[in-house]
Nucleic acid binder design. Structure first.
Lengths: 191, 191
DNA sequence: TCCTTTATATAACACTTGTTATATTATAGA
DNA sequence: TCTATAATATAACAAGTGTTATATAAAGGA
């Protein structure tokens, strides 16, 4: 019989997540991981074929975490559902900046573009109906808000701006209502 | 007398810029640089004390390039000056994605935050006067537009969205006019 | 008690990085 | 023509990476 297991697969994944949180993807190395686990590098390679596969798992775990947060935010009732999803994105960037970078600031040239067109179409449809907008107007509204959310999230994740809970919310509201007004009342402001 | 100089300081800087453009900051290594210059790694170290100092110069050069583009864009008259600066930022992200990442997607936690508060105040003042806004309204308008510009730029630089010249311009215009309408006509759209 | 099994540790490998010590070698002045 | 100079080239170093070969050792069954 072999000695009992000291380092589990889950231990390694947990330590990897912590390491990425603390130092970013770059910090996830065999030696650093072993040090955090108080063991040699060997258990890593008996649990995973190579570092790349472990990194993929960390990536998936990060996305899972983000999805959970979004779900929780939409359930909480703190914001209306659409806004809740945007705020969850922003708060994820604030509280898990390294995981946010991993998921949403990576290079995607030549990769899949918008994976959530179906989801977008649903949102656009709801917007149209609720506010009496044309398809293009609703799509534009959705795009602007999504760009704002993404822009804010990146700013916070990189420390370019300091996060203030109300600021983000207010920006989104102002933009939403402003655009809505513009679309619903074409002759509003000409200048 | 020594042999004549084959590799100049400028050669090295130029090759470094090309390397960063092609492969990002990570790609700027001694060997890769030597290969591009068709020489050994030695000329690098007789022109620069170490790689870090060369990287600093590349960083400054990238900013210089960005500043030139902004200036040119504002001179061109293609857009009004304020919008021109935003579009220049976006176009820089599109055409020099790696340089954009170096300048504006790096980590700034614990670093200087907004270096251009003076510039911002000037813009806000002009906005107030021209559109009859309160200070807070003008600041908010400026913030929203800046976040939009940054968000779009990051999306294009990472390949998250494909750049369409009109799209960015339209988004900015809609947001600008929408917010302006909201601020100038408080009771515009309530719901 | 001993033996088989295998989780872990140790040590080494091949490779990449920045940097430096040493060797070449081209050039103009003597 | 020879020589001092310094710009390059070659080669090596130390440190860090992923990965693997070998050694150690713990734990239950024989």
């Amino acid at each position: 019989m072999p000695p009992s297991i000291k380092i589990t697969r889950e231990d390694i994944i947990t330590a990897s997540m912590d390491l990425v949180r603390e130092q970013g993807t770059e910090g996830l190395t065999t030696r650093a991981l072993a040090k955090k686990l108080n063991c040699s590098t060997q258990p890593i390679f008996s649990n995973f074929p190579n570092m790349e596969s472990l990194k993929k798992i960390v990536f998936d775990k990060a996305y899972e975490l983000y999805a959970e947060r979004t779900f929780a935010s939409m359930q909480s009732g703190k914001y209306p559902p659409y806004k809740a999803s945007g705020m969850a994105y922003i708060e994820f960037a604030v509280e898990e900046p390294q995981l946010f970078k991993l998921l949403y600031m990576r290079d995607r040239t030549g990769k899949e573009k918008n994976d959530d067109t179906a989801e977008s179409e649903k949102i656009i449809a709801v917007m149209r109906e609720r506010n009496g907008l044309s398809y293009d107007q609703a799509r534009q509204l959705h795009t602007v808000l999504w760009v704002l959310v993404h822009g804010l999230a990146v700013m916070y994740a990189t420390g370019f701006q300091e996060y203030k809970a109300d600021e983000a919310s207010e920006i989104l509201t102002d933009a939403y209502l402003g655009l809505l007004g513009r679309f619903q009342n074409k002759e509003g402001v000409v200048k």
